[in-house]
């Protein structure tokens, strides 16, 4: 297992609170824009594609594919950082791939959401594991 390292608790702003509350409820919420209909990540009040401030959260089905990854081996417990492209979108998010054989990961591999606790009372974060 690669997830025994301490996961720092993310800092929550009002702007991003629904995202973190969603994760506490087991959901990965992705910001979308009502003006241009594009998705974006990380979530912002303003759409980084068109500049509109008319944005809303939509639940992801938690499926995706590894866009790229790297197993960090210069630590006692190696872990895999990755960008995962969310199914049905053109956006990729930084994450970790967990519950896997680190030597058998591959770009293009299908993965699914796996929500992992962070330090203290912090909200959990979205990681992924092989399907």
């Amino acid at each position: 297992m690669s997830d025994k390292r301490t996961i720092p608790a993310p800092h929550v702003e009002e702007e991003t609170r629904p995202y973190w509350e969603g994760l506490r409820d087991g959901k990965l919420l992705v910001k979308h824009c009502r003006t241009c209909e594009a998705a974006h990540h990380y979530p912002r009040s303003f759409c980084p594609h068109c500049g509109s401030d008319d944005t809303y959260f939509k639940e992801s089905d938690g499926r995706g594919k590894i866009y790229s990854y790297s197993v960090f081996r210069a630590v006692p417990e190696p872990y895999a950082i990755a960008y995962v492209t969310l199914a049905g979108t053109d956006i990729s998010m930084m994450t970790n791939i967990v519950n896997c054989d680190l030597d058998r990961l591959a770009i293009g591999q299908e993965v699914k959401l796996c929500i992992v606790d962070t330090e203290g009372d912090g909200p959990p974060v979205p990681m992924f594991e092989p399907v």
Partner: peptide, 22 residues
Amino acid sequence: DVAFELPFGPTIVNNYAMCAHR
């Protein structure tokens, strides 16, 4: 970006390594 990246252990090396892998 920090809240959406730091939990996943991004270092300079693994960031460039993802570019190399792709």
